[in-house]
C-alpha cells in the first residue's frame, strides 16, 4: 500500500466547498491533469494565494465539512494531480469523503480539539504529516515538536484503499 504524507497546507476554515476546490468552469476538462493549475483558485480565505501556498504541499489540514457541495470527483482529482493524497479534517461532506476513498486517497477525521491542537502548534508551518492507514497512526511534526494521533478507518474504507479502489473491488465481487 502506498504511503500518505508530506508537507502540510493549512486551510483554517470550515465548509470549504467543491466549487472553491475546483470551479465549475473547469469541468469541461476530460483529463485529470488539465485541472492542475486551477486547484483552490476560488478559495475564500484571507491571505491565501494558490500560486505560492500550494507549492510543495502534499497534505491539507482543515476544519469541518470539507468538500461540501457538488458531487464532482474533479475535486479529489485536482488534489491528486497536485500531489496531495491526504486530507486531515474534523469532518468531511459525504460524497467528497467517499470520492477520496474510491480514488485510493486518504481522508482522516480527527476530533475538533485535535484539529485545534494541530493548528495552534504547527500552523502556518512548515510542518509535516505522515499517516499509515494500516496502523491508524498519524504523526504531525515541525518546529522541533511533534504530535501523535490515532485514527480509525472503517473496514470497508481500508478494503477499498487496499483493492486500489471501488471499481476493481466491485467488479470482482458483484
Amino acid at each position: 500500500m502506498k504511503t500518505f504524507g508530506g508537507n502540510i497546507l493549512f486551510l483554517d476554515r470550515s465548509d470549504i466547498n467543491t466549487d472553491e476546490i475546483i470551479p465549475a468552469k473547469y469541468l469541461t476538462e476530460i483529463s485529470r491533469q488539465a485541472l492542475k493549475p486551477y486547484l483552490l483558485e476560488d478559495l475564500k480565505l484571507e491571505g491565501f494565494d494558490p500560486a505560492s501556498d500550494l507549492a510543495g504541499k502534499q497534505v491539507i489540514v482543515t476544519r469541518d465539512n470539507f468538500g461540501c457541495g457538488s458531487s464532482r470527483e474533479h475535486a479529489p482529482w485536482a488534489l491528486e494531480v497536485n500531489g496531495i493524497n491526504l486530507v486531515i479534517a474534523s469532518g468531511f461532506a459525504r460524497i467528497f469523503r467517499q470520492n477520496m476513498f474510491n480514488c485510493g486517497m486518504l481522508a482522516v477525521e480527527l476530533a475538533p480539539e485535535q484539529i485545534e491542537a494541530i493548528f495552534s502548534k504547527f500552523s502556518p508551518g512548515p510542518a509535516r504529516a505522515e499517516a499509515d492507514p494500516r496502523t491508524g497512526q498519524l504523526v504531525i511534526s515541525g518546529n522541533g515538536k511533534s504530535l501523535e494521533f490515532s485514527f480509525r478507518l472503517g473496514e470497508f474504507d481500508l478494503a477499498l484503499v487496499q483493492a486500489g479502489g471501488w471499481v476493481e473491488y466491485a467488479d470482482s465481487r458483484y
Partner: peptide, 12 residues
C-alpha cells in the same frame, strides 16, 4: 455520487 461510484453503478 462521484464518478467512481457512478462507474460502478453503470457497470454493476
Amino acid at each position: 455520487v462521484g464518478t467512481t461510484d457512478l462507474e460502478v453503478g453503470i457497470l454493476k
